[in-house]
């Protein structure tokens, strides 16, 4: 197990080097257009002294390998450089945004797990019932609806129309993370539902098909023949086996969400990592972009590792690091 863990961690190194190198190559003059100094200062003309100083400060006059080596050296010290646009350290910016992204991601994952798995199990156990039909229908629709549209419709319904219908007595916050009218958790409701919508539908569908497959297995019939209650059969036998693909999906999804959800974060004005990176791309803010991507790579790799490790808990037959028997 420990061996496996070490191997996985070591595997992260080439992935990480590959990603940072790729970004540096993209940055090389001639690959992508645009003078970085102009991106910092804008269209107004600047003095040569100022230009020289900016070039010097950001190391723009050095060769690309040299810049890369310096960058890696600084990274080891936890320094991701200074944002071109905001005049703040990238580490500070990401440290500001990451907790917001995590909060939203966790809220969305909780919705995804509770709603998705429950709906999947019910529609599998009661195949072709009204509940099953409704689940299948609504999941199809949720998968098809664009996230930004769903988000705006939720804002309109719960933020504006509901407020009008109830004379201002009841409504939900539609943007931001805090306000005087609402506790912080209330601000999370609509963005979390929006972010969870598509994934919840997928989880429900995967869970349904996995459950149906599990319920048709011999060991289920054996369990029933032994006289176990229906509930015990479903929860203790079928569900546990059906969970592995679902856990994989949720794990990967969590990794993706950690990277920030650009659309949801934009619509709900949620100051997360995704939004920051999105801005950085538009403004050619390389330090933020690099820092953000490195950050995402780490987040995804670590979540994936945790998911792999969790298989052992779900299925005792899976063992890591040992030779094949």
């Amino acid at each position: 197990m420990l061996k496996y863990l070490i191997r996985r961690v070591l595997q992260m190194i080439p992935v990480f080097l590959g990603v940072t190198m790729l970004l540096f190559v993209l940055r090389a003059p001639g690959v992508l257009p645009g003078d970085p100094v102009r991106m910092i200062t804008g269209e107004r003309a600047i003095s040569d002294t100022l230009r020289a100083q900016i070039v010097e400060e950001y190391g723009l006059d050095r060769s690309l390998p040299e810049q890369y080596a310096i960058y890696l050296g600084n990274l080891m010290k936890g320094d991701l450089g200074q944002s071109f646009q905001k005049s703040r350290p990238v580490v500070d910016i990401l440290a500001d945004k990451f907790p917001n992204t995590v909060r939203l991601a966790l809220a969305a994952i909780v919705i995804e797990i509770i709603m998705g798995i429950t709906a999947g199990i019910i529609s599998a156990v009661k195949q072709y019932s009204l509940a099953d039909v409704l689940t299948t229908l609504s999941t199809s629709i949720l998968v098809a609806i664009p996230v930004f549209w769903l988000g705006m419709m939720l804002q309109l319904l719960f933020g504006i129309l509901l407020k009008r219908w109830t004379g201002g007595a009841f409504y939900l916050p539609i943007s931001g993370m805090e306000s005087y009218q609402f506790p912080a958790w209330a601000h999370m409701i609509l963005p979390a539902i929006t972010l969870a919508s598509v994934s919840t539908a997928y989880v429900a569908r995967i869970m349904r098909s996995q459950m149906l497959e599990a319920l048709g297995q011999d060991y289920i019939r054996t369990a029933e023949a032994k006289g176990l209650s229906r509930r015990a059969v479903i929860w203790r036998h079928a569900m546990k086996n059906a969970m592995i693909p679902v856990v994989t999906f949720i794990g990967i999804d969590l990794g993706v969400m950690m990277a920030g959800a650009i659309l949801t974060e934009t619509i709900f004005n949620w100051p997360g990592v995704g939004l920051e990176i999105f801005h950085a791309i538009g403004q050619r803010d390389w330090p933020v972009l690099m820092g953000g991507v490195i950050f995402i790579v780490f987040a995804v790799m670590i979540v994936n590792l945790l998911v792999d490790l969790s298989y052992a808990v779900l299925d005792p037959r899976i063992r890591y690091g040992g030779a094949a028997e």
Partner: peptide, 24 residues
Amino acid sequence: RIRSIMALTLALALLVSVMGLGGC
């Protein structure tokens, strides 16, 4: 009961999306 709640919730999600169409 759980089943009906689940069905209701998912139906509501659907309803929300559809209602948005008319209420702008």
